[in-house]
Design a protein around this nucleic acid. Structure first.
Length: 153
DNA sequence: CGCGTACATAGCC
DNA sequence: GGCTATGTACGCG
């Protein structure tokens, strides 16, 4: 039985949206609009603590699926690129035995930004991009926001 | 299993 | 700064 729920957490530059199904997080996205905050729950509390700098690891229930390499890259980020750390697309590609383009592909396909710390992946030239799918928002702004929050910028 | 499509790159001018 | 070359993975028929 599917029970879809939607939560919102506001911060300085907009709102973070959390989509869940039966108590499991399936998607996270961002918006520049300020949506009224949802009541407290496991998801909103952890994200709010993260935004306050009190929490460095999100560990609520999630569900995501894709090809084996994408999953490997996502897991690598969660396991080896902890709070405040940074890697380049090239390094990440090398660690997963693939190439930088694929890493970008994986990032753009990431259904759970923030839970999977794809904002800690930067390019060798500039900072790289962010939120490839949601081209209606300025993802770079969020990326910088998170990196600044973690003291990496 | 093969082909088309996608990529948030890196590197050179 | 802008343009181009490029590899690899996903998803679907």
């Amino acid at each position: 039985m599917d029970k879809y729920e939607f939560f919102s957490i506001s911060c300085e530059i907009g709102s973070i949206l959390v989509y869940t199904n039966s108590g499991i997080c399936e998607q996270i996205s961002f918006t520049e609009e300020f949506i009224p905050e949802s009541d407290e729950n496991i998801f909103t509390i952890q994200i709010r603590e993260y935004l306050n700098g009190e929490r460095k690891i999100l560990d609520f229930s999630v569900k995501y699926s894709s090809g084996p390499i994408f999953t490997k890259i996502w897991n690598y980020l969660r396991e080896n690129v902890s709070y405040g750390r940074i890697v380049t697309y090239s390094e990440l590609a090398k660690a997963c035995n693939t190439n930088p383009r694929v890493v970008g592909y994986a990032m753009a396909s990431n259904p759970l930004p923030l839970y999977i710390p794809c904002h800690r992946v930067v390019g060798s030239k500039g900072i790289g991009g962010y939120s490839g799918k949601e081209h209606n928002i300025d993802g770079i702004k969020w990326k910088k926001y998170f990196l600044t929050l973690e003291g990496s910028l």
